[in-house]
């Protein structure tokens, strides 16, 4: 249907795309630019740095903010990966059951996932804070992983259920008829079909966990478990009265790199995952 297209139309498309790219990248470009400003340029109110320098990155990787930033980065990565892994595994089982088995309570599980997804984090944080202090989970990795599951599980279940419903499960039987053992059939036929969905779900879950701020600032208090978004509030200038703009922006850029890489590599899958899990006729 888009066979013949005039040059004018083509140019319009390119311009439109350019506008969207600008819209999406502008704030990112600004924070990158800020992170390369030297201390004296930070307040010059220009978009671009006059004397670009790596100084702010040195601050967070080897300078004064190192002991704050590196543990936070480690915590964020560790906690988010574990939370993602746990929720994808649990969601895989649940989604398989929902997609393939007939049992009462299917709708209940999906509605519960919905309710959990709309739950305001702030309502959970007060009681969790109190409870965690009581049982010693305050300021620990599990103390964050558990609430992160409330963020990642629902979306994992929907997305995976949507993916699994599209898998032609009959092919498993077909393979078995052709002489494969059931394990072989599962591994050779089903796993390759299901893997992309699982992978996509993992990426989306990771984004959500990576984004958390409320739990991060409320349920942690030391380097033992403080994640990056919370740590950004702890950076400091030469004294406690000075704004650590440089360190914050450099750290912000560093934590943005993984998500940008994931987006660049897997944009098609992520879009499929988000649209699939969300609205399906």
């Amino acid at each position: 249907m888009m066979g013949a297209m005039s040059t004018r139309e083509r140019v319009l498309w390119y311009l439109g795309a350019l506008a969207i790219v600008l819209y999406a990248l502008f704030p990112v470009a600004w924070i990158i630019s800020l992170s390369f400003k030297s201390q004296g340029d930070l307040t010059d109110r220009n978009f671009l740095p006059r004397n670009p320098s790596w100084g702010n990155y040195e601050t967070i990787f080897s300078g004064s903010a190192r002991d704050l930033f590196l543990p936070a980065l480690r915590n964020s990565l560790g906690i988010c990966l574990i939370a993602t892994f746990v929720s994808v595994v649990l969601a895989m089982f649940a989604a398989y059951a929902i997609a393939r088995l007939d049992f009462p309570g299917k709708r209940l599980i999906l509605s519960t996932a919905l309710v959990v997804a709309i739950f305001p984090a702030i309502s959970i944080v007060t009681p969790l804070f109190n409870l965690w202090r009581g049982i010693g989970l305050y300021d620990t990795w599990p103390g964050l992983i558990i609430p992160y599951l409330s963020l990642t599980l629902p979306i994992s279940i929907w997305t995976l259920a949507a993916f699994f419903r599209e898998i032609p499960w009959e092919m498993e039987q077909a393979a078995q008829v052709d002489g494969a053992t059931s394990w072989q059939a599962f591994r050779k036929v089903i796993v390759p079909l299901a893997a992309p969905g699982v992978f996509t779900t993992a990426i989306i879950s990771f984004f959500i966990a990576w984004n958390d701020f409320i739990y991060g600032i409320s349920l942690t208090s030391t380097e033992a478990s403080r994640p990056v978004p919370a740590a950004l509030a702890f950076f400091t200038g030469a004294s406690q009265f000075e704004e650590p703009t440089g360190a914050i922006t450099a750290a912000a850029v560093v934590v943005t790199i993984p998500v940008v890489v994931l987006v660049l590599l897997f944009q098609r899958r992520i879009v499929a995952g988000l649209t699939n899990g969300a609205v399906k006729g």
Binding site: A24, P27, P229, T256, V259, V263, I270, V271
Partner: peptide, 8 residues
């Protein structure tokens, strides 16, 4: 996808 994925 970049604004979507970036930390709030």
């Amino acid at each position: 996808l970049i604004p979507y994925a970036i930390i709030t």
